[in-house]
C-alpha cells in the first residue's frame, strides 16, 4: 500500500529556465552583442529547458486522473500561447525599426506580443473554471491572488517612485512578469500551508 506516488519535479526546471534567461541577458550585455538576431537567438536558448518541465508536468497531470485533465489542457494552452508570444516578439524586434515611421504593420507587430501575453491569463482562468478538484482549484486561486497582490503592489509602489522621479522608468510589460514571479511565491506559500504547491508545480 503505497501513499507516495512519485511525482516528477517541475519547478527546478522552471527556476533553471529563469536563471538561464537572466544569464543570457547578462551575456548579451557583457559581450555587447549588437546584432538583434544574435541577441534574440541567445535569449531563445534557455527555452529548451521548458521541454523537460512540460514533459514532467504532463506526466504528473496524467497521474492525477480526471483531476489532471484540466491541467493537461492548461499546459497545452500555455505551450501554444508561448509559441505565439515568443515568435511574435522575435518578429517585432526584427521588423520594427527603433525611431522609424509608425506604420500599420508596425502597430500590428507591436500589438501581437501583448495580446499573446493575455493568453497566459486566459489559460490560468480556464484552469480555474475547468478544475473540478476543489483542493487543486483553491491552490491555483490562492496562487493567483498572491501573484496579483505582489504585482499590483510593486506596480503602484514603483509608479509613485517614478512619478516623483526617484527611480528610472520601467516598461509596463514587466508587471505581468512580476505577476508570474508572484505565482511562484504563491506556490511556495501553498506548499508551506497546504502541503501542495498547485498549478502542477
Amino acid at each position: 500500500m503505497s501513499d507516495t506516488t512519485p511525482t516528477k519535479r517541475v519547478w527546478p526546471w522552471f527556476v533553471t529556465f529563469l536563471a538561464g534567461m537572466v544569464a543570457m541577458g547578462i551575456a548579451v550585455d557583457v559581450l555587447d552583442i549588437k546584432s538583434k538576431a544574435v541577441a534574440s537567438g541567445m535569449m531563445m536558448v534557455p527555452i529548451v529547458l521548458l521541454f523537460p518541465m512540460v514533459r514532467n508536468a504532463m506526466s504528473n497531470a496524467k497521474q492525477g486522473g480526471s483531476s489532471g485533465d484540466p491541467v493537461r489542457r492548461y499546459l497545452l494552452r500555455m505551450i501554444v500561447v508561448s509559441i505565439v508570444y515568443l515568435s511574435s516578439l522575435f518578429l517585432a524586434s526584427q521588423l520594427i525599426e527603433s525611431g522609424g515611421d509608425i506604420t500599420p504593420l508596425a502597430v500590428v507587430l507591436a500589438l501581437v506580443p501583448g495580446i499573446a501575453m493575455s493568453g497566459y491569463f486566459w489559460a490560468i482562468g480556464s484552469l480555474i473554471v475547468e478544475q473540478k478538484d476543489e483542493f487543486q482549484r483553491m491552490l491555483v486561486v490562492r496562487q493567483a491572488l498572491i501573484a496579483t497582490a505582489i504585482a499590483l503592489s510593486l506596480a503602484s509602489t514603483w509608479g509613485f517612485l517614478e512619478s516623483f522621479e526617484l527611480v528610472g522608468h520601467v516598461h509596463a510589460y514587466w508587471w505581468p512578469i512580476a505577476w508570474f514571479f508572484g505565482l511562484g511565491v504563491g506556490a511556495i506559500a501553498n506548499k508551506i500551508q497546504h502541503g501542495a504547491a498547485g498549478e502542477s508545480m
Binding site: G68, E134, F135, H194
Partner: peptide, 16 residues
Amino acid sequence: LDVSRQSVNAIETGRY
C-alpha cells in the same frame, strides 16, 4: 472520490 492524491493527503493531515 475522483480527486487528486494531494487532495486526500491535505484532508487527512487536516490542512484542508
